[in-house]
């Protein structure tokens, strides 16, 4: 039941991405090409998604907790640190090169398009590289303290 619901929610997201044009790098890159062949469509995607989420969250987060139990797992941090700022800046450079973001590329896997699979493989390698770096860094700092 829980998994079927999660599948359905993922499906709504996947259809939304497919319909909106977020899975299409040419459309994404043209949104940012204000000085060239500008396509403002993506502003409508962000606007629509934000408006619905902003209003929906106001109702949902008034509840004591999620319908299926547990607690709302919301990030509580409010400080700005270098990984956040630097990571966001780096993400933008990659997004500007490739035109795919993770939320756009995951649903696009379903088309079987080779370019999507190549992007996702490179994305996973990038995620893995940072995790590996953190793991080595953690092991080193632990070795130093013991």
């Amino acid at each position: 039941m829980r998994l079927l619901l999660c599948y359905g929610i993922g499906l709504i997201f996947g259809v939304g991405i497919s319909m909106s044009g977020m899975a299409n790098p040419a459309k994404v890159l043209n949104f940012f090409d204000v000085a060239g062949i500008w396509d403002p469509s993506l502003g409508f995607v962000m606007g629509g998604a934000l408006a619905v989420t902003f209003v929906g969250y106001r109702f949902v987060l008034k509840r004591p907790g999620p319908v299926l139990g547990g607690m709302f797992q919301l990030p509580r941090r409010r400080d700005l640190d270098m990984p956040l700022v630097g990571g966001a800046a780096i993400f933008g450079v990659g997004w500007g090169i490739a035109g795919f973001c993770p939320g756009g590329a995951l649903p696009a896997i379903g088309t079987g398009d080779t370019n999507v699979l190549i992007f996702v493989a490179a994305l996973l390698a990038g995620i893995g590289a940072v995790k590996l770096f953190y793991a080595i860094f953690d092991a080193r700092s632990r070795a130093k303290t013991t």
């Binding site: 991405i17 497919s18 319909m19 044009g21 899975a23 299409n24 790098p25 040419a26 459309k27 890159l29 990030p75 990984p83 956040l84 700022v85 630097g86 990571g87 966001a88 800046a89 780096i90 993400f91 933008g92 450079v93 990659g94 997004w95 500007g96 090169i97 490739a98 035109g99 795919f100 973001c101 993770p102 696009a108 088309t111 398009d113 370019n115 999507v116 190549i118 992007f119 996702v120 493989a121 490179a122 994305l123 996973l124 390698a125 990038g126 995620i127 893995g128 590289a129 940072v130 995790k131």
Partner: peptide, 28 residues
């Protein structure tokens, strides 16, 4: 299927994907 048009080379796609992976992991 939804249109997927990639206006860049495969090499650039790999570079971009790798950079996106690093950025989103660091930036949470």
């Amino acid at each position: 299927f939804p249109a997927i048009q990639v206006p860049i080379s495969t090499g650039m796609l790999v570079v971009g994907g790798f950079i996106v992976g690093i950025g989103v992991t660091l930036g949470s």
